[in-house]
């Protein structure tokens, strides 16, 4: 076999898979979103944007991601630092940290619902301690910000570990000698973190940020479990238009909005966290 064709042959199964299950549905969605009775139209996007719920939905999604993802990065960095320093109990701690990863997001949402709902753990505790006389309705539509916080907590709990796992493996790749050099040349622990760990971890941070941001734009089950429709998000609205309002075209337009912000975020991370030429290990 010719060595020139071999790489293409090896790539073929993955390419076919991508075409069948990603490119083709994408084209279908794009077709749905931009056409009406066979002709090009922006009408579905106008319907989408004209709906009073669109902008709140859009901003809810973006703000949630903008709060959750940076928090996750900071927490994951701290956790990874701890795990990377451990010698004996490293794997045990790593497993414990990653347990929430094994749960579906709906299950995670329900766990946090069990904490926050009117008969939930939090209320039982507050009543038990005598802090309040009767259970409080935390997740009502009057307390949108509580739902917001609950969703943030659930998301942090559920998906920080994946960022940590990526960072831990990235930290393992940084040769010890760089830390020693930094130490000899005057860097204390914090400076070593800022001047060695962070810059050398940039490729891992980039990967983790892209993955998590895209996932954060797709947040759905956790929000539904905790807030029902009180806190609308983009995927929730997509679902709503598709199945409740039976308008597949507008649903497709929503899907494309999610795709667009995901691509935009990815491009930003690729640019901001890029490694200059020659500056790799």
């Amino acid at each position: 076999m010719n060595s020139k064709t071999l790489p293409y042959l090896l790539l073929a199964p993955a390419t076919i898979f991508l075409v069948v299950f990603f490119l083709w549905p994408f084209l279908q969605i794009a077709w749905l979103a931009f056409t009406t009775e066979g002709g090009f139209t922006m009408q579905h996007f106008q319907t989408m944007a004209g709906n009073w719920k669109f902008w709140p939905t859009f901003w809810n999604t973006v703000i949630l991601a903008a709060i959750v993802v940076p928090l996750q990065l900071v927490m994951a960095l701290a956790m990874a630092q701890v795990v990377a320093k451990l010698k004996t109990t490293r794997n045990t701690i790593l497993y414990i940290f990653t347990i929430p990863l094994g749960l579906s997001d709906l299950a995670a949402g329900i766990i946090w619902l069990a904490i926050f709902e009117q008969s939930g753990f939090l209320n039982s505790m507050l009543v038990g301690l005598g802090v309040v006389d009767k259970p409080i309705l935390f997740l009502g539509y009057q307390n949108l910000w509580v739902i917001f916080i609950a969703v943030i907590l659930a998301e942090l709990w559920r998906a920080t570990a994946i960022v940590m796992v990526i960072l831990v493996s990235g930290m393992g790749l940084i040769p010890k000698e760089y830390y020693e050099a930094a130490e000899v040349f005057g860097a204390g622990p914090w400076k070593r973190f800022v001047k060695v760990t962070l810059p050398m971890l940039k490729p891992s941070i980039q990967t983790a940020m892209i993955l998590r941001t895209i996932a954060a734009f797709e947040v759905f089950a956790v929000v539904v479990a905790l807030g029902g429709t009180t806190l609308p998000v983009l995927v929730g609205e997509t679902f709503n238009w598709q199945f409740a309002l039976n308008d597949r075209n507008v649903a497709a337009a929503f899907a494309l909005v999610i795709l667009a912000i995901s691509i935009a975020a990815t491009l930003v991370f690729l640019r901001v966290l890029r490694t200059p030429k020659g500056a790799t290990l």
Partner: peptide, 9 residues
């Protein structure tokens, strides 16, 4: 250092 440890970044 033996492997120089010149910071790549």
């Amino acid at each position: 250092f033996q492997n120089y440890a010149v910071f790549p970044h």
